[in-house]
């Protein structure tokens, strides 16, 4: 799972409340080379919640600036860093609020609830 995808996910346990975002991240960051796609990353940056991304990067010990650089759209070095922000192969997402864990196995996160949680 890309750390960028983490930015788009929230806890869905019934009654978890408003503090269901962002989820915390648990696991080891694996760096994977991928072709830099400028269109995508610029597009993605407009959707990303940066504090959540920063927190996730802290959780898995990746070095990102604590706040979004002002010139981020022209800052290719920064954009490439975000683009390459790595993957989690094994680990989990967990909700700080209700402590629910969503496991990540073989790079795929499982966001399914149990039947008693719906």
């Amino acid at each position: 799972m890309r750390i960028l995808s983490h930015n788009m996910l929230q806890c869905i346990v019934k009654g978890c409340g408003a503090a269901n975002y962002p989820l915390r991240l648990n696991g080891e960051a694996v760096h994977k080379e991928s072709e830099y796609n400028e269109d995508f990353i610029k597009h993605m940056m407009s959707k990303i919640d940066y504090p959540a991304l920063y927190q996730a990067s802290q959780d898995v010990k990746i070095d990102l600036p604590s706040s979004l650089p002002e010139d981020y759209l022209d800052n290719e070095e920064f954009l490439k860093k975000i683009h390459d922000v790595t993957h989690i192969e094994e680990g989990g997402l967990y909700c700080n609020n209700c402590k629910r864990i969503y496991p990540i196995k073989n790079g795929i996160v499982n966001m399914l609830l149990n039947e008693n949680e719906v």
Binding site: S5, N7, C11, V118
Partner: peptide, 23 residues
């Protein structure tokens, strides 16, 4: 076209886990 692949997520469409923002 591997570089166009972001992720797949195991999720139930009746309880969609995506953040409620237009993206």
């Amino acid at each position: 076209i591997e570089n166009k692949y972001i992720d797949v997520i195991v999720a139930d469409n009746s309880h969609t886990p995506y953040r409620t923002v237009p993206f």
